[in-house]
Design a protein around this nucleic acid. Structure first.
Lengths: 185, 185
DNA sequence: TATCCCATGTAACGAGTTACATGATTCT
DNA sequence: AGAATCATGTAACTCGTTACATGGGATA
């Protein structure tokens, strides 16, 4: 039913809260420190996003007074939040995402541990691969039509093409590594 | 003086209008047809952006009644617009852009024809390369610190690392091709 | 004592998205 | 005649950004 009702940031928060309970400030520090999924670490985005998730019933907030003098507002996933996260993780890569929202695409992959079976992850990557191949075909014909353009425009298009070709190589490696883990058990 | 006062879309519009006079609808069609710089083609973004540029004096609009029954509102660059475009084209790649706004980075490159000297373009690419190398070093240490993470998280980080490595290869090729053109004249 | 970091937020603003609106022209 | 396309826009909404505000605890 819900296709993509939440923003990428909100799904990222669900994914983080699925692992451990966190406060807004914990998220803030994580976004500053880790290069994974480079979101804005500004409180003006994080706190409102957590509030929206709470309003929708996907997370609950509790005031933790135990540890420190000042209470921390910590958030944890609800059942509904967990379900929404899983539904999102199972969404295949679309052309739209490939072109405009690669961040979401790879974020989703990075959050599947313990939530999707390895076979499902491989299926996700195979769908991703199909989209890249199909888009590369389109970029190839675009390149052929570009004979009259400037060197710089052609190089810019090459930049995109080579980036997607690199993604295919990554996908193939990833699939084989996940397969190894499957076989090795 | 103006660092980045305009949005990426607005700079893209300046770059297009630098080549030829266009109407909002022309831009719309271009964004639909070409894979270069995949912006939204919705009129709700294009028309307001053109109006903003006009309000700032970077473009002028004139009603073209000659060609068709319904007048088309066509936009052309002003001197100030041309200067703003050039200033933007000369801005080196920053870490921030590398991580969060690659679109702008490559868009800028694709628009330099006839506006920047090949030597300037090569300098731009060398700056771009330095930023990638420096960021890759950081990602490498992040990977080393990730020993405890899941296979998927590590693969997600590899995705980023390999993408940036691919960019270095593209930069080197681009520099040598531009150099060839320089030498061949 | 003053200043920095922890930790939480709010307010104003700007830009993009979606959806709607309009009317003319060309195609079927 | 009706549908699709050309061509221009507007309105409502949401989200993210920037900047500001607050106040406790630690450090100089």
């Amino acid at each position: 039913m819900p296709e993509t009702l939440l923003t990428t940031l909100e799904y990222a928060l669900l994914g983080l809260l699925a692992r451990k309970v966190m406060s807004g400030y914990d998220v803030h520090r994580l976004f500053i420190q880790t290069p994974l999924a480079h979101f804005s670490s500004s409180p003006g985005s994080i706190y409102p996003a957590l509030k929206r998730l709470a309003r929708r019933g996907l997370v609950t907030d509790t005031l933790d007074r135990s540890t420190e003098a000042r209470p921390r507002r910590v958030y944890s996933l609800t059942e509904a939040g967990s379900a929404a996260l899983d539904a999102w993780l199972r969404q295949p890569v679309t052309r739209e995402e490939l072109v405009r929202n690669q961040q979401a695409m790879i974020l989703r992959f990075s959050l599947v541990e313990g939530r999707l079976a390895p076979e499902e992850v491989i299926a996700y990557l195979e769908g991703y691969r199909r989209e890249v191949v199909s888009y590369l075909a389109e970029l190839g014909t675009a390149r052929d039509r570009m004979a009259g353009s400037s060197l710089y425009e052609r190089l810019a298009l090459e930049h995109g093409i080579q980036a997607y070709e690199g993604q295919i190589r990554w996908i193939d490696r990833a699939i084989s590594q996940i397969g190894e883990r499957l076989g090795g058990e």
